[in-house]
Design a protein around this nucleic acid. Structure first.
Lengths: 349, 349
DNA sequence: GTGAAAGCGCTAACAC
DNA sequence: GTGTTAGCGCTTTCAC
């Protein structure tokens, strides 16, 4: 039950604690090769593991970063959490998981608690437009990476933002439909409340323009639901949007959805109307959640490069935390990728 | 940048550190009400937050528990992680997230690392039939709750197992089909490798017997894929199983799947065969992942009471960790619940 | 009712 | 090249 301490190792190896400590902290060159081997063996034999609390108390550093997500129950965030944890492991970090449940107060409390836990780097996936509630903690020295949220003018100066280029993403999606020959395109989204949503709509509009289609020929279906507010709501919105769109005189042949759940709802609405997805109507999603590939038909969608994004988040955090001092913020926009599956094809006739 | 310490608080309040500490640790009754108020105000004013590392070093206790899951990218585990984190928060604990990625070695290393981080309670969602690889750490005093894995005879003595009653679950699913009037039922699963799978099959067999149907009239489709090994694999297995089953002379009218992903694959296979799910063929899943309700048609399935299970896991861990000493293991089997949606109905004709 | 002081296990000057 | 030592911030026993 009693753990092995550095003193016991030192004693058993016939050296001082500093020698053991030196070995532990990558200063092996300071000692004779034979000493080194002896200490290494002793550590091995005794099964010694440094006490993190003591180490942290002494150095002020933790090997833990915080992750605040709306909910890992959501596959999108679950998938990101997984990638982030793997990236963190590579760099010798652990991840403390915090679900904000979209409660701004819970989010703020978590951030403060993480700080007082000694954690100096946090990845925040916030649903909130403003980050002023975390500004005080950042002022104290917390390094924060905002994920999936484009940088804002009034963001704290030191903030790092990592996100995909949403405009490029939906431009890819829309251009794909235009290239296939579609001429009547619709964009389905709830209210364009967040910057992400606005950007995605902008990409859609850009692509139409480039394809020589005027924007006013397209249909924007405004709903009340908020971005990723709930999977069920997104899907339901898509379904109803499809019903409405397909009952018009000149129904679209291609639909760009704000996200995959919405696209899935659209697919269902298309089927409700007695039409087939992928042949009668082409549908493109966004995010490439696990489900997209498992759906029937597999969904053409825009993939967020999760692995790269997670790695970038860890790199930023590690660099900043280890440097210590205040560092200027920046914004990283990664390029999304179009994944073509079976929900899109050339229009009929 | 420099944090407020207990000394500073003591000095500012004109008391000693022990008085502040006493207040912090629920021993406020030891001091005069006025002292108490004064100290409380000072803490508030200075924004003092106790340093966790120092506290942990001193007491040997952490307010963090470990969670080891195959991958939070999987919606089933993501959903559990979310519930566990919420339950932990209620009790003042944090959750450290570890994805084993189904690598036994990574799993073992994580457990050991958690131990040396000072963590004394871990929820392990292991894919491994044997837990002997964690026995040494449990010997040292780590409290372990195994989740979604029925207890085994050779498990470490102190192990707590929390799971649903899988046999009851598939019995509910199967009885539901029998009650609807189905007479030709199939059970689709990969190899019955894990205890969970065996139990689910047992429940299926029991229900048939009770309905007066002999087991040998049913079809077991053995595949190579392992339980929850991968969503894609599970779904593919279901799809191929459906193809095979439906091309027989006396195809089943009701199919019980080993899990939801498999059920989704079956639905697709049914559609491939030109039949409709919910009318021509009834399909029941298992787990009630988010997707089950969003699919088309919404899937009838067996729900695992995640919230209760997570709460139970935290309660067990908290009790044991705070008691300190060795505690006898036990096994908790919660009752699953049948969720009837549209993928099941009475058979045709 | 309050304070003084020891020490948890470790790191990093600094001395030799 | 190796050892000695002073704390990191906190809790807790033991005096007063």
């Amino acid at each position: 039950m009693a753990e092995v301490t550095i003193q016991q190792v030192a004693k058993a190896a016939g050296v001082s604690t500093s020698t053991v400590s030196n070995l532990l902290n990558g200063r092996a060159h300071r000692m004779l090769p034979e000493t080194r081997v002896r200490v290494e063996n002793t550590i091995e034999q005794l099964g010694y593991r440094p006490n993190r609390a003591a180490r942290q108390l002494r150095t002020g550093r933790t090997q833990t970063i915080g992750l605040v997500v709306p909910s890992v129950g959501n596959p999108f965030w679950g998938s990101f959490a997984r990638q982030l944890e793997s990236a963190a492991l590579e760099e010798g970090y652990h991840v403390l998981l915090c679900n904000s449940e979209r409660d701004p107060d819970r989010e703020r409390r978590y951030i403060e608690e993480l700080w007082s836990d000694g954690i100096r780097g946090v990845v925040l996936c916030s649903s909130l437009p403003s980050l002023e509630h975390v500004a005080p903690v950042m002022q104290r020295g917390l390094h924060l990476v905002a994920f999936d949220r484009a940088a804002q003018a009034d963001d704290p100066e030191a903030l790092v933002s990592i996100s995909i280029d949403n405009a490029v993403g939906s431009q890819l999606a829309t251009a794909h439909l235009a290239d296939l020959g579609h001429r009547r395109l619709a964009f389905v989204s709830g209210a364009l409340g967040s910057v992400n949503r606005k950007d995605r709509y902008r990409g859609f509009a850009n692509a139409l323009e480039q394809a020589g289609l005027s924007v006013d020929k397209t249909i924007l279906w405004p709903g009340a639901s908020d971005w990723r507010f709930g999977d069920v709501e997104s899907a339901e919105l898509g379904r109803r949007a499809a019903h409405e769109l397909l009952s018009s005189d000149t129904p679209p042949t291609g639909i760009v959805a704000i996200n995959d759940m919405c696209a899935l709802g659209i697919c269902r609405g298309v089927r409700d109307a007695g039409l087939e997805v992928g042949t009668d109507v082409s549908v493109v999603g966004f995010d490439d959640i696990v489900l997209a590939d498992l759906y029937d038909p597999p969904l053409t969608t825009v993939r967020q490069p999760m692995t790269e994004m997670a790695a970038a988040a860890i790199t930023e955090l590690k660099t900043r935390v280890e440097a210590g001092g205040p560092t200027p913020g920046r914004s990283l926009l990664l390029r999304p990728e179009l994944v073509v599956r079976s929900s899109t094809s050339a229009p009929r006739s």
